[in-house]
Amino acid sequence: MVTWEAAYRIIGWEAWKFPSLFQTMQSFYDGFVQGQLLEAIGNSLRRLLIAFALSLSIGMVLGVLFAKVKLLDDTLGFLVVALQTVPSIAWLPFAIIWFGFNDTSVIFITALGATWTMSISTRTGIKNISPIYLRAAQTLGTGTGWKMFTQILIPAAFPHIMTGVRVSWAFAWRALVAGELIANGAGLGQLLQDGRGLGDTALMLNVVIIIAVLGTISDHIVFKRMEDKLLVRYGLEK
């Protein structure tokens, strides 16, 4: 950080290309005091959580269906693998036509970014369950219906599902910022865009830092920790 500030002073690049440390800190402080940054974070997180909840539920349902219904897996399953390779931001023009420049468009493409990964992870998780668990469960009287599903399929596939959740979160985050850059509504992406419009590089850098910090916190402190705990409990890692 010292090098950063020193370099700024010694080399003397212009602030409209890249801000100095003090400018960034000043802008960060202002952003919080005026509530602009907090409001943007709040808005972005709200969208992200709605989209994430949507994609987890849809993705899991799809994944279970793919794992259980062969016909569906051969047809729709293949399509999903193909769709997964498309960056979700590519759907934004469609979303804007369908929903307009608003929240719904952003939520739509954010959810889209995470759903496919989630469904593929769930499918893999269920497909990879060792047959011995299914047999052991049946011999203990679960049958092959709902009890089997909730008490064996889901917990047995859980490590895979958890990995899917973590990757989906990262995808959703990316799609969200990209979506907000283009579509309207206050949010981090929008703030980034405003910064560019005003030539306020300090604000832009702040947004980037906030995205990085939020991403790291959510991934490492929440998901990674949950996943590690799970792996240890399942005996997959010591």
Binding site: I132, Y133, R135, A136, A137, T139, L140, I152, P155, A156, F158, R233, Y234, G235
Partner: peptide
């Protein structure tokens, strides 16, 4: 008729 398997088949999450 409960089965005891060669590889125990205990559920690792329980």
């Amino acid at each position: 008729r409960v089965v005891v398997f060669q590889e125990h088949g205990l559920f690792p999450w329980l």
